[in-house]
Simulated scan of single mutants.
Amino acid sequence: MVAAVQQDRFLRFGAVAEMIGLSRSTVWRMEQEGKFPKRVQLGSKSVAWRQSDLNAWMSAR
């Protein structure tokens, strides 16, 4: 039997804002202070956050 591997999802800012209720500028400031998960560069003009990182951050709060 093969174990199922759960893939991490990448969430764009709209989904992140809906999930955590913070503004774009607050998220940016908290990232700079090391108080929020770092974004991942997906392309030259595209960023997202790992859902697992956000879940861990919310659990730790």
Rank of each mutant, 00 (worst) to 15 (best):
K35F: 10
S23W: 00
M58N: 02
L11D: 09
W57E: 08
M19A: 04
F10R: 10
L11Q: 10
F10G: 07
V27Y: 02
D8F: 09
R29L: 12
A48G: 12
K45I: 08
A3W: 07
E33C: 06
E33M: 08
G14S: 08
M58H: 01
E33F: 05
A3D: 11
M30D: 07
R39F: 06
Q6Y: 09
R12V: 10
P37F: 05
S25W: 11
V5I: 15
L42R: 09
S23I: 01
F36I: 05
L22T: 00
G43L: 03
Q41N: 05
A4M: 11
L11C: 07
A4D: 04
G43A: 04
L11V: 07
Q41E: 00
M19D: 05
E31C: 02
L22P: 00
S59W: 14
W28P: 00
K45N: 12
M1A: 15
R29Q: 14
N55F: 13
D53C: 04
K35N: 10
S46C: 10
L54D: 04
L22N: 03
F13M: 12
A17P: 01
T26M: 04
V27H: 01
Q41A: 04
F36G: 02
R29F: 06
L22K: 04
A56C: 13
L54C: 02
A48K: 06
A17I: 01
S59T: 11
W49I: 13
A15E: 13
A17V: 00
N55Y: 15
D8H: 05
V40Y: 10
R50K: 15
R39G: 02
L54A: 02
G14N: 08
K35R: 09
R50L: 13
G14H: 06
A3M: 08
S52Q: 14
S59K: 12
E33N: 06
R61T: 14
R29S: 11
W57V: 05
S25K: 13
R50W: 03
K38T: 05
S59Y: 13
Q41V: 03
P37M: 05
A60V: 06
A4C: 09
S44A: 08
S23H: 01
S46Q: 14
S25H: 10
V16I: 08
R12A: 15
Q6D: 06
A3Q: 05
E31L: 00
S59V: 11
V27I: 04
F13N: 08
G34P: 02
S46D: 10
M1D: 15
F13K: 10
F13T: 10
M30E: 09
T26R: 00
S59A: 13
